[in-house]
Design a protein around this nucleic acid. Structure first.
Length: 293
DNA sequence: CATGCCCCCTGCACGC
DNA sequence: TGCGTGCAGGGGGCAT
């Protein structure tokens, strides 16, 4: 579920509703997700007000007044659902209105006016942490992260510099969060398709002998930006309503050119290739061997 | 340091 | 219908 566009969509959906909201209590229904919850997690959040919500890479950052930041990573299957106050005023959660199996509702944040935010995560690859704003950039999760793909410091020069001397596949290189932060398996495949670059070529081919960005690097950068921006727009349109159990499904996948399209015809009308699936770094790569070189 | 592999966990689609 | 297999949008940790 969550790559950068999804997390961005979650961020945009939660922002207007939760900015300024005060946490009255936090329910922890188990003591860990992928990692243990930080100690005194509930107590340290209780009574805090949300100052603002942001995103870094695939992390959702909920900053409290006073400077604590609740860091949330959704892993593979994490989902946040915001529910309005129960009309009855009862504190009891109404599971039937929530998506997902209630057994996987691991955390519930309750807010002052009765709204609550539920974290559901069947696979529990997600995690949460609580750190101070000042410590965020030095935090082990953040210190090595590359630039935001949609930010100003991501450009062909940066990619070329990172790719210098790297023999690894272009696919693995782009998936590495130290190269740039937020691309996942789907969008790497899609961006490489748009840029007509083979996922198997060496990352070092993004650099010329003169140590400048190759032309293909100038093509790749906007391909990455475009696919992410389009996915955010599409995600925003169907994920807006967090109460809809199926809101998280079927948003951008109709727009995939290669992901999940093994054996189907390449969508480029000038190409009569067939989408192939290979394994790289232990994960599926989809691409058109004919027009991606 | 760079790279490749395994693993965490549950659900689901598929073939028999 | 039931069961086994393989696979899934992430990323930490370890061996080489």
């Amino acid at each position: 579920m969550p790559e950068l566009p999804e997390v961005e969509t979650v961020k945009r959906a939660l922002e207007p509703a939760l900015t300024g909201a005060k946490i009255t209590s936090v329910q922890l229904r188990r003591k860990n997700l992928r990692f243990p919850f930080p100690k005194n997690f509930q107590r340290r959040l209780q009574g805090r007000r949300i100052a603002h919500i942001s995103r870094r890479a695939k992390y959702l950052l909920i900053t409290m007044t006073g400077g604590k930041v609740l860091v949330i990573h959704l892993g593979m299957s994490g989902r946040l659902t915001l529910s309005p106050p129960n009309k009855t005023g009862s504190k009891t959660k109404t599971h039937e209105t929530l998506p997902g199996d209630p057994r996987h509702d691991h955390v519930v944040f309750h807010f002052e006016q009765g709204a609550f935010l539920t974290y559901n995560d069947p696979r529990r690859f997600g995690f949460m942490d609580l750190v101070h704003t000042d410590e965020l950039s030095a935090h082990r999760l953040f210190h090595a992260l590359g630039p935001e793909p949609l930010g100003n410091s991501f450009n062909a020069r940066h990619l070329a510099r990172m790719a210098t001397g790297r023999k690894t596949d272009l696919k693995a290189f782009l998936l590495d969060q130290r190269t740039l932060a937020g691309l996942g398996n789907i969008y790497v495949c899609e961006a490489l398709y748009r840029a007509r670059l083979s996922p198997r070529r060496s990352a070092s081919t993004l650099v010329t002998k003169r140590n400048t960005p190759a032309k293909r690097t100038d093509v790749l950068v906007p391909a990455i930006r475009d696919v992410l921006n389009e996915a955010i727009v599409a995600g925003g349109s169907s994920l807006k309503d967090f109460k809809k159990p199926d809101g998280a499904l079927g948003y951008f996948q109709h727009a995939f050119d290669v992901y999940g399209r093994e054996g189907r015809k390449c969508r480029r009308d000038t190409c009569n290739g067939t989408v192939a699936r290979i394994t790289q770094a232990g994960r599926s790569t989809f691409y058109c061997p004919r027009c991606q070189r």
